[in-house]
Design a protein around this nucleic acid. Structure first.
Length: 577
RNA sequence: GCUGGUGUAGCUCAAUGGUAGAGCAGCUGAUUUGUAAUCAGCAGGUUGUAGGUUCAAGCCCUAUCACCAGCUCCA
């Protein structure tokens, strides 16, 4: 959205109207900033009393009056000095702080009614141009986003050119709630968390675990095909290992406390890399062996602050689909390209076609040489370019040990979550002094690439649930087929069908309860099972099954052979069109 | 971690400071059923936890835990 986007202008103006209403109702508050954002706007206020739902109603009512009054928005250029005096007089200390940082000699201020704001604009011509708005939520937010600063009160809202569009948006929010993975995780009996176990720790139920095991098997097969070898490593290690790696110094706050074993401190692992490095170092390595690609579904534990935990998307214990590539300098480009292609292949296999790609470059605090950073960053960027993806460069956002590519997937309400990451690491090879023997007979340091395609299985599964709204494609569905005998007398025949499907490795269930067909169909539908096979006397006599596909499609009766062929085709294609 | 909100049956939710209730799910029985809910009966609770105020607390107060929204953070 450009600053001139009409919707953005209207939302920004609505934010000003809200600020006016707030200031008129609560003269003691101080205003700070209030921009338009992706789906609306917010304004941050400094007020000792928190806003309550009743306040929101009052503010909305006042806003309606302001809009009705159709006050003009007027813009004026004044000198910085004048602006300083103006906001000084109004005791708007946040505005004064902002003014201090403006380099130009003149600034623009916008005014409507009694309200004046330091603002670049542009705005609507008058308040009456706002046709439909709603205040959505109240939240705390730190002044200038810094947790050392005072926490302000933020009010979120949105506005649209018409009532219909606003209602449409509100409906979409409701719709999104229905595909929330936490809701569906409960409804479909996929996973749970428990107070007595602890926050951010996931129990995978049989249904969720079935899908997870399908994902893991697919992952392993594809890694084998792509030249990786699978490794396994322990869950705990001596704390000294983490001193060597440097993690203890940098990430102590996110690591769990040591436990004493025979007088030595051990900690539960927050990463897998040091273990893979130790496998590398277990014997002398030759340049002829490189690149080495080692992958592991490694379960790690990290302390996350209580307020950030979120269903499966942000947890304290998770399994990374981790891998480390050790390669020669002149293999770097090729390896990064391969990893990126592999990443996209995996994401597309799961039906994710839209994501954000970020390239993060050298931060202020870094290890390694500038030359190496540049080389690695170029390798990453050219791989993205070759893939044809759009990407953003996050300058200085790289980790201290190397540049990285992140791929993010969006959840049902538009929040994006990092899944894939490809990182070059200049730190660990140095810390652990890993080498290979080169053609020249001398020892050299290999380049290390750290990568995760799905990121964590927990987060990936959460995104997957929301992406499909719980209706997984056939290959991922916990149950693929359910048999629905109409009466007891078809149970023996149905059981034979179950056995036949199981022989073909389908995941199959049978509903042989003494219930009406309508109920069985309803419940199978709610369980989002892709295929329902209805078995009545007709089917038994003709040695067929009546096939109903999830959704609403009665496909009519069918020979088993045909059904099995059809489903195998569908599994093969992964349901990705 | 911070700001605010919410915790009542497996789930979704009721209940002026005065006897904790409904629907669905569960169990039992009847019904043998043809493409999204058959009927009846039964059972289900230390109201997140620990204190406190009160003659009396699901409701008020304090602490604590968890969850929700946002902020900050995310190797």
């Amino acid at each position: 959205m450009s600053p001139e986007d009409p919707l953005k202008i209207m939302r920004h103006s609505t934010a000003h109207i809200m600020a006016q209403a707030v200031q008129e109702l609560y003269p003691e508050i101080k205003i700070s900033i209030g921009p338009a954002i992706e789906n609306g706007f917010y304004y941050d206020f400094d007020r000792d009393e928190p806003f309550r739902p009743e306040d929101i109603e009052r503010i909305e009512a006042r806003m309606v009056e302001i809009i009705k009054a159709d006050l003009p928005f007027t813009c004026s250029n004044i000198s910085k000095k004048e602006a300083y005096n103006l906001f000084k007089e109004r005791d708007e200390r946040y505005k004064l702080e902002l003014l201090d940082e403006i380099k130009e000699d003149t600034v623009t201020i916008y005014k409507q009614g009694s309200f004046i704001d330091l603002c670049r604009g542009p705005h609507l011509s008058s308040t009456g141009k706002v046709k439909a708005f709603k205040l959505l939520s109240i939240a705390g937010s730190y002044w200038r986003g810094d947790e050392k600063n005072k926490m302000l009160q933020r009010i979120y809202g949105t506005s649209f050119p018409s009532k219909e569009e606003l209602d449409d948006y509100l409906n979409r929010i409701e719709e999104a709630k229905r595909r929330d993975h936490r809701r569906l995780g409960k409804d479909l009996d996929l996973f749970s968390m428990d107070d007595e176990i602890g926050s951010g720790l996931i129990n995978w139920h049989p249904n969720g675990a079935m899908t997870r095991s399908v994902i893991e098997n697919f992952w392993r097969d594809e890694h084998y095909k792509n030249g990786y070898q699978i490794v396994y490593s322990p869950h705990i290690a001596k704390v000294n290992l983490w001193h060597t790696s440097g993690h203890w110094d940098f990430y102590r706050d996110n690591m769990y406390s040591p436990m004493d074993i025979d007088g030595t401190d051990y900690i539960i692992k927050p990463m897998n890399c040091p273990f893979h490095i130790k496998i590398y170092k277990n014997r002398l390595r030759s340049y002829r062996e490189l690149p080495i690609r080692w992958a592991e579904l490694g379960t790690v534990y990290r302390y996350e602050r209580s307020g950030v935990l979120h269903g499966l998307l942000r947890v304290r214990g998770f399994t990374q689909d981790d891998a480390h590539i050790f390669c020669l300098s002149d293999q770097l480009n090729e390896e990064i390209s391969r990893v990126l292609d592999f990443t996209l292949y995996i994401l597309r296999s799961f039906g994710f076609m839209e994501y954000e790609v970020h390239l993060s470059t050298r931060p202020d605090k870094y290890v390694g040489s500038v030359k190496n950073w540049e080389k690695a960053t170029e390798a990453l960027e050219s791989a993205i370019k070759r893939s044809g993806l759009c990407y953003n460069i996050d300058h200085g956002e790289g980790v201290f040990y190397g540049p990285k590519i992140d791929v993010k997937i969006k959840d049902s309400i538009g929040r994006s979550w990092q899944c894939s990451t490809i990182q070059v690491d200049f730190n660990l090879p140095e810390q652990f002094a890993i080498t290979y023997i080169g053609e020249d007979g001398g020892a050299h340091q290999p380049i290390m690439i750290h990568r995760a395609l799905m990121g964590s299985l927990e987060r990936f599964f959460g995104c997957l649930i929301e992406h499909y709204a719980g209706a997984f494609p056939l290959w991922l569905s916990p149950f693929q087929v359910i048999l629905l005998p109409i009466t007891d007398s078809q149970i023996p025949y149905s059981n034979r069908i179950v056995e036949e499907l199981k022989r073909h490795t389908f995941r199959v269930d049978i509903d042989s309860r003494n219930e009406k067909l309508g109920l069985k169909i309803r419940e199978a539908q709610l369980r989002k099972i892709p295929y329902m096979l209805i078995i009545g006397d007709r089917e038994v006599k003709s040695n067929t099954v009546s096939v109903r596909k999830r959704g609403d499609n009665d496909l009519g009766s069918m020979e088993m052979e045909k059904l099995i062929y059809m489903m195998k085709e569908e599994i093969e294609s992964k349901g990705v069109v």
